[in-house]
Simulated scan of single mutants.
Amino acid sequence: MRVDTGISYPYVSQRQQALSADHSVATSFSAPLTAPQAGATNQNNFTSMTRQEMRDWVNTQISSGEMSLDDSRPFMAMTMKISVDSLGGEMPAESDATRYDFTQKIRDGIEGAQSRNDETTLKMLESAMQIIQRSQGQATRVDVRA
């Protein structure tokens, strides 16, 4: 059975991943499920995350349909780092190993929006806080090869 038959992939990388994956479907459900090996699960920890980890998490949420593009706006804004030295150019997230507390960034943003009476930003950040509170500690992926 080909899983990707009739499916349109908006990104070339998705199609390549689908083509390289094993498309067979198990027909027997009698085999017991085994728990992942200890340490094989990464968990969301928004209190200590790099900008790239946050971007990867957001992209996964969007591609899985669990987050809309509108809901992703505050997260993407928090992952930007503008360099004064490069005259306002963004510093690449991939090369930044600094860990940030994104929950605190959202709290600070909420406080700022309240002080400015900015209802639009306040609602957006409160929604972002609810999203990460639901996702905190959840498994991000399971490494089945371990």
Rank of each mutant, 00 (worst) to 15 (best):
D96A: 07
M67P: 05
M80S: 13
M91P: 00
D85C: 00
T60H: 05
S63H: 09
M78G: 09
T98N: 08
G88P: 09
M80Y: 05
A97P: 13
P74K: 01
G89F: 11
D85R: 07
R73I: 15
E90G: 02
D96L: 03
D96V: 03
G65P: 06
G88W: 06
S95F: 12
G88V: 09
M80P: 00
E66R: 13
T98Y: 01
F75C: 10
G88Y: 06
T79M: 11
A97E: 07
D70E: 13
M67Y: 07
A93G: 02
I62L: 15
V84S: 15
M78D: 04
D56R: 08
R99G: 05
V58L: 07
G88D: 04
M67F: 09
I62N: 10
A77G: 11
E66K: 15
T98P: 00
P74R: 02
G65V: 08
A93M: 04
M67Q: 06
S63L: 11
S95T: 11
D71G: 10
W57I: 02
E66I: 01
P92F: 02
E94V: 08
P92N: 03
T79E: 04
M76Q: 12
S68R: 06
T79R: 02
K81N: 12
R55D: 06
D85Q: 14
A97V: 02
M80D: 09
M78Y: 03
R73E: 15
A77T: 14
S68I: 06
L69V: 09
Q61N: 08
E94I: 09
L87H: 09
M80A: 11
D96W: 04
M76E: 11
